[in-house]
Amino acid sequence: MSIVIENLSKDYGAAPVLSGISTVIATGEFVAVLGASGCGKSTLLNVIAGLEPPTVGSVAVPAGGAAFMFQDAALLPWLTARANIELALEMRGIPRAERRHRADGLLELVHLSDAGTKRPHELSGGMRQRASLARALGQDKEVLLMDEPFAALDAITRDLLHDELERLWRAHRRTVVFVTHNVREAVRLGQRILLLSSRPGRIAAQWKIDPSVRSDPAAAAKLTQDITARLREEIRHHAH
């Protein structure tokens, strides 16, 4: 077992943001967390990452913590793409002599070998997210937490990054918790989908995605429809 969340609740003093969340995420599992904006997806991820303490309950992650990928790539603008990756290696305690070589390998992994000397503002949105992904992989943690990492990208770029992420996940087998508000994205990537309700955020429903669904467009479309309907139902609760 990789991540164990038990009866997790979180509030910021006022109304609860998350309430009574319990789930177990297996090693190497790809879980998509789906929910409307403001339902507490980022909060959940921040608690798992240890950026925020839980108010009630507990979260257990593997020793050494988790790697994190932010929605905006959060690359440091004064460093080149390679230096941004090297920074993650430095903070892991990798000796200087090795960092350069390893960073080049990570850049190659996300097909950015030619962009290592560029600064973030010289990269397109998709390239920035790939550099950010390379940095997260450079943290070399068993768990990778991703907070709507592709939400700001155009659809063509996002599709490509889905392929890229799936490829890397198959090759490197991290435990991934992927937050999104996009049903299609969740169905495209997740082995399991957790639907969060809003105010408070609870696990309203979950689906296991059979791998065969992804190779069958009709089945994928049907599932996407079902999940969308369920999501809308959750949102309708708040109409009154």
Partner: peptide, 13 residues
């Protein structure tokens, strides 16, 4: 995939 990405990268840079 690599080629597609390279194409997009060049277009968007």
């Amino acid at each position: 995939l690599k080629e597609l990405e390279a194409g997009l990268d060049h277009l968007q840079e």
